[in-house]
Nucleic acid binder design. Structure first.
Length: 416
RNA sequence: GGAGAGAUGGCAGAGUGGCCGAAUGCGCCGGAUUGCUAAUCCGGUCCACGGGAUAUUUCCGUGGCGAGGGUUCGAAUCCCUCUCUCUCCGCCA
């Protein structure tokens, strides 16, 4: 979430940004609630101060005085209790509205909806086939690389079994990504696939809402993670760091679970949109300045590009428009890989700079000799490899006339 | 799953109703001493929120002893719920 003081001081800018992002929030209401909150705090603090004074006199007071003080003390307690209830209500209302305000946007991020996307660059040659290219479903079926019916039988539509070469390929993609991250200075993690709802909320995901994308476990406060971003961000929740420890780079392997409520159709064919997949995710914490986090953002996108170049898959880099950023992102770059089976680009990675939007909710701060007090760190996340999507792009781009698939050099040490 | 113990500042560790933001030790920062280092001595050393000044330094208040509730004039201390840690037993990839 955004800083309350910031919202009050820049109400117009914040409201304009909400508009750009297609989010409707009553910003003046936040300012008004903030003012009520301030007044209530001042009043309760005052009452508590008197309460302290009164009770401090009691041990030394005479019997007569004592009854008076105790009576006054009771009065004060009642007043404080009622003020506290009022305050709680105001703060609840405030958090509710404040929580719906999205992060501010990078000045260069294109303003508008999905159509406003800007292609920053396109890399790699789109393959020209002298035969009719197949899509990944045909190819993987022909090679007995997955079992979609089996997945549906066991767990329902949107689940799948990978088989044989696809299993080798999944592990190879994970190994390849992890090795690349390690070289890039990332600490590696395998993370829990479940997390507390509190952690999901801290990272900006809403479990258990009517429109949630999250699977939750009944009778617990646990949900299945949609990405390791949740667990890696949650790992440093409530921590106070030294600026000298930053930046921190983490690479996490997890399964990702998404309800993906919605229709079937071309976009859901095969393993393009599934309820579960394996992903290697990057997460980074930087000092709270845009120079640092923007540089990290570039590094993360650079690694994503390096990975797809290594896989010899053509891709383009998208500067995501404001209307499509989601709540926490200040700026987001997506890699879209060419997918011959779809005859279009399909999203394979996503890298966001969330500035201090996540860290404020997660309470991840840092100290430095460069400033007084503590500040919220900047957080960033990006996909190294989302296995199913990467696999589609890889299989479809590297298919041959005879239906065989050439594995790029970079993976052969694992796949053979 | 059963039985028990526990959670206090950066760390260790006292504190069982008011004199406790919290002893003591370690660590850290500044200073003194010193040919240098060590040792010694002196001073300082948490976070958040609200307010007043000054303009970025200082002052006042409030809250914080795992989390959330409760009892009380007053809670680190008593009660309840939750989370986590440890020990023993059972089960187990």
């Amino acid at each position: 979430m955004l800083d309350l003081q910031f919202i009050c001081d820049h109400a117009d800018e914040v409201a304009a940004n909400c508009l750009n992002r297609g989010v409707s929030v009553d910003v003046p209401r936040v300012v008004q609630l903030a003012d009520e909150r301030r007044k209530l705090i001042a009043r309760t603090d005052q009452l508590r101060h008197e309460q302290k004074e009164v009770s401090a006199k009691i041990p030394k007071a005479s019997a007569d005085e004592k009854t008076g003080f105790i009576a006054r003390g009771k009065e004060l307690r009642a007043e404080i209790t009622s003020k506290e209830a009022e305050l709680k209500e105001v703060e609840g209302a405030l958090k509710d509205v404040q929580g719906r305000i999205p992060n501010m946007s990078h000045p260069s991020a294109p303003v508008g909806g999905e159509d406003a996307l800007v292609v920053l660059r396109q890399v790699g040659k789109i393959p020209k086939f002298d035969f009719q290219p197949k899509d990944h479903v045909e190819l993987m079926t022909a090679h007995k690389m997955f079992d979609l019916e089996g997945g549906a039988k066991v767990a329902g539509h949107g689940f799948y079994f990978l088989k044989n070469e696809a299993v080798m390929l999944e592990l190879a993609l994970v190994q390849y990504a992890v090795e690349t991250l390690r070289k890039g200075g990332f600490d590696l993690y395998t993370t829990p696939d479940l997390a507390r709802d509190e952690v999901l909320e801290g990272t900006g995901y809403l479990p258990r809402g009517p429109e949630t994308q999250i699977y939750s476990i009944l009778n617990t406060d646990l949900s299945l993670v949609a990405t390791a971003e949740i667990t890696l961000g949650g790992l440093l929740k409530d921590e106070l760091l030294e600026s000298t420890q930053l930046p921190i780079r983490m690479g996490g392997i997890s399964h990702c679970f998404r309800t993906e409520a919605g229709g079937h159709g071309k976009a859901t064919r095969g393993i393009y949109r599934v309820h579960q997949f394996t992903k290697v995710e990057m997460f980074a914490f930087t000092t709270p300045d845009l120079a640092a986090s923007n540089a990290m953002h570039e590094q993360i996108v650079g690694i994503e590009e390096q990975i797809f170049q290594g896989l010899e898959i053509p891709y383009r880099v998208i500067d995501t428009p404001t209307g499509d950023l989601g709540g926490p992102a200040y700026r987001k770059f997506d890699l879209e890989a060419w997918m011959p089976g779809r005859n279009e680009f399909g999203e394979v990675t996503s890298a966001s700079n969330c500035t201090d939007f996540q860290s404020r909710r997660l309470s991840i701060r840092c100290k430095s000799s460069d400033w007084k007090g503590t500040r919220f760190v900047h957080t960033l996340n990006g996909t190294a490899v989302a296995v199913t999507r990467a696999m589609i792009a890889l299989i479809e781009n590297h298919q041959q006339a005879d239906g065989s698939i050439v594995i790029p050099q970079s993976l052969r040490k694992w796949t053979g």
